[in-house]
Structure formats: structure tokens, C-alpha cells
Design a protein around this nucleic acid. Sequence first.
DNA 1: ATGACTAGCACGGCTAGA
Length: 276
Amino acid sequence: MRIATWNVNSVRTRLDQVSVWLAAEAPEVLCLQETKVADALFPHAAFEALGYRAVISGQKAYNGVAILSRLPMADVRVGFDALLPDDPAAVELGEQKRVISASIDGLRVLNLYVPNGSSLTSEKYPYKLAWLACLQRYLQAQEAEGEPLAMVGDFNIALESRDIHDPGRLEGGIMASDPERRALRAALGERLRDVFRVFEPDSGHWSWWDYRTGAWDMDRGWRIDHIYLCDQLLACATGCVIHKAVRGNDQPSDHAPVVAHLAWPPESAEGEDDDW
DNA sequence: ATGACTAGCACGGCTAGA
């Protein structure tokens, strides 16, 4: 199974590019962020023509997440409050459509669009920290269910210096501040690992390049789109790749797709009692 | 220090992104 994540910065504006990429790569699952469209206007037909069903949580103009899958999806959950119905913050944070999950082939795919935060002095910054604190509670509730977890999305956080093109200038600022990093690490706990770093220790690998200041031409990017796996899925991982070339398209999203390759479901051992 | 680009909304110039 291949699970992909891509912040498309408007699914309608990027529909042709997403369709071309899906037709070429055909991952089993593609998680989208920043769809920027109300649910009634989501372009289901274009994806169905390629063999994908979509489950969505969108809103007009801002935010919005979707899971596209070639495999059946079950037990779809929208928002933090789906698992935290008595948590006031979870209910309030649900106003912005940033969280959706589905059970696919025996694992839980959780697709997130973490708030950007804008700047350390913006009121959006404490919102981001509160959102991450809620994510931690949400993940604790999810873990209690015992379903293997793949958590993907646009995290709007570079966890380490090697994830930023110019850490000397950018570290400590938005997307690279200690409180953001601590909040995300607390949510990950000991359970979830960034699968990209299992296969690639070096810096110089980015998933987002600013539209401005020639960031793409100078290859000045950040790695803020991540795929986190629980131990059971991590043991099945065979690779994780950033599809950088997509950022070089005409009228691209500012993010590139990231794809994790999993040998899932695991093949049963020789002589196991499959036919009982 | 600031702004650069892009998209949405709605048709002028904002908000928001990261």
C-alpha cells in the first residue's frame, strides 16, 4: 500500500495536476489539504473516473481536507470531536476543517492540516499550540482503540534544523519555534515516527517552497509535510519519497506530494492457518 | 525591517497562507 499526502492549495485550481499525478502514480490513498471548497462543490466525479472515492471535510475558501482511496473506506471521522465529544476545545476547533480519518485495509489513515500560526506574535500562534494540545488528546483516544495508525498531512512545523534550508536565520521563528516543536513531539510521544527520516538522514529534502522570493529556483524549502507511522506500520515501511518534480509544474501548489510505501497488509507466514 | 507570490471572494483589495 502506498499512502500519499499533498497540500494542493485549492483542489479545484489544481484538479488537472492532481488527476495527472494520480493517473501516473496510482497510490492506494491520497490525502489532500487546503482543498478550499465547500463539500457540495467538491469535484468527486474527476476522482471517481480515476478509480478513487473521496471522503471530505471542507469549507468555503479556507482549509479543507479529503482522503481519496482506491480501497474501501470505513468508519470515517471528521474533526477532533469525533473521538473527543466531551472536550470543549475539540468541539470549538472543529469550526476549521482540518481533521479527517478513515479505516482502510485494517489501518487508520488520519489526515491533518495543522494551523500555520502566522507569526509568533499573532493570535493564530496560541491557536496553533492549542490545536496541537488537542491533537495529543485525540491521539491518546485513538491509541486506546488499538487500530494501527498512519498520520499524514501538512504539519506546518519543521521538527529539526535539517528540515529547513536556512536554520541559522529561520530557527526559532514560526514553524520552527520550540513551543511548536515541543507540542508536536508531545503529541507523537514514543508511538509515532516520521517515516521519511527512517530512510533519509540528510538535509536538503524539502516538501514546501514559498511562492515568493524565488524560493523554488534557489531550492530554499522546508520539510513540513510528514507521514508518521506507529511501530507496527513502520516495520512494514519500504520507503518514503518526496515527489519534488511536481513543484516545478506550471501553476503549481507550493507543496510537493510525499508518498510512503508500505508492505501492508503483511504477508502471512509460510504454513500459517490462512484457510481456517 | 518589509515584501515578495498565489488563491478565494467577488470584481477591489482585502484575508490567509508559511
